[in-house]
């Protein structure tokens, strides 16, 4: 019989809601709350021998202390497997489930699995470290989550081979497993298209990253504004001194503008490997419109121009890396009082 310890919060333990969120951890024999659904799914193969519950605020307020207390309780019981949640879309609960699961996995070396909604902040933070089964956003999803969670838990406890995320129902991140699709790609693509056309549900095999949204900036007075140019079109000084890669760029460049009297084909080139470089190599201003910005400034149409431009290659470049480049570039521009950025993309 596989021995399991199950972690839940004060709400699912039936202790209370927000007013009880600051209670410390307790351990009790047997199942509580959502553990009942798991128990049914486990049948006779495994047993939740103990349930630990803890207030979400208590865990969040001092994670080090709370996790040490919980770890001590688990050590006494010596389970074969640890399950936390499901947390659904409860933020603090999800963070607690991810955190304690990772700590148990690292400290006790036993398999762990948790479950939550994909937008729960705990998912983004812990899906690369522990198996997180994807659930719906509310407890109404327990019925569908329990069998998936139980099945993965049993496999982990028995040391069986874990399949791909799409087969087992965990979030991509923890493990990458190859598998053979039964149908070839062309058939899957056509079936997906037909489903889309007829308004039937379909699941993409290549989900887009979740892009964040920012509120539009207020309008500005361009006559007093300080301008800068940033580009993902890869315009670099001739010779590409920093060797910015033609795809999957690992860096961005910060360069002074070349002399406007020079033939642009002798001072600029593009490092970008994702479009025909001929036209940008002939005249880099087609991507980096500094000649016009300078003209505007001399005519008094704009205030001033930041002395450098920032450039990278937007070609297969990871969104995470791009976001970091953007952050760093924005900090530099803000430090110089820039309030108008022209961003060009190819």
């Amino acid at each position: 019989m596989i021995k399991i310890v199950h972690y839940i919060n004060q709400f699912y333990a039936g202790v209370g809601g927000e007013e009880k969120a600051d209670i410390g951890p307790s351990i009790q024999e047997g199942t509580m709350g959502p553990g009942l659904a798991l128990k049914a799914a486990f049948g006779s193969e495994a047993e939740i021998t103990h349930t630990i519950y803890c207030g979400d605020s208590y865990y969040a307020a001092d994670t080090g202390k709370a996790s040490a207390e919980i770890l001590e309780m688990i050590k006494q019981v010596k389970p074969d497997l640890f399950i936390a949640g499901p947390a659904f879309n409860a933020g603090r609960y999800g963070l607690a489930c991810g955190s304690i699961s990772k700590i148990v996995q690292d400290e006790l070396g036993i398999p762990v699995v948790t479950a939550m909604y994909h937008e729960n902040p705990g998912a983004e933070m812990y899906k690369d470290s522990v198996y997180i089964v994807a659930t719906k956003d509310s407890a109404a999803g327990m019925r569908t989550a329990a069998p998936t969670l139980a099945k993965l838990a049993l496999k982990l406890a028995k040391g069986e081979k874990i399949g791909a995320s799409i087969e087992e129902g965990y979030m991509p991140g923890k493990a990458r497993v190859n598998f053979f699709e039964e149908k070839r790609g062309s058939r899957r693509a056509v079936e997906m298209l037909l489903a889309k056309i007829s308004g039937k549900p379909f699941v993409t095999e290549f989900p887009m990253p979740d892009f964040d949204r920012v509120a539009p900036a207020a309008k500005i007075d361009v006559k007093t504004a300080r301008f800068a140019i940033v580009t993902s079109g890869g315009i670099v000084p001739k010779g590409n001194p920093d060797r910015i890669e033609s795809s999957s760029a690992s860096k961005y460049g910060e360069y002074e503008y070349a002399d406007l009297n020079a033939d642009p084909s002798t001072v600029y080139e593009t490092a970008h490997g994702g479009y025909d470089p001929v036209y940008a190599n002939q005249n880099g201003y087609r991507v980096l419109p500094y000649d016009i910005l300078d003209e505007f400034q001399k005519a008094g149409k704009i205030g001033s121009i930041h002395g450098k431009y920032y450039t990278t290659v937007g070609n297969g470049t990871a969104v995470k890396d791009s976001a970091r480049y953007g952050q760093e570039i924005a900090e530099k521009l803000l430090a110089d009082g820039v309030n108008a950025v022209v961003l060009t993309s190819t």
């Binding site: 509120a215 036209y279 940008a280 005249n283 087609r286 991507v287 016009i292 060009t344 190819t346």
Partner: peptide, 14 residues
């Protein structure tokens, strides 16, 4: 949030 269409991928401004 503020988008200005360009001419073509290899020569957006020209």
């Amino acid at each position: 949030n503020r988008i200005v269409p360009a001419i073509a991928i290899p020569y957006p401004l020209g």
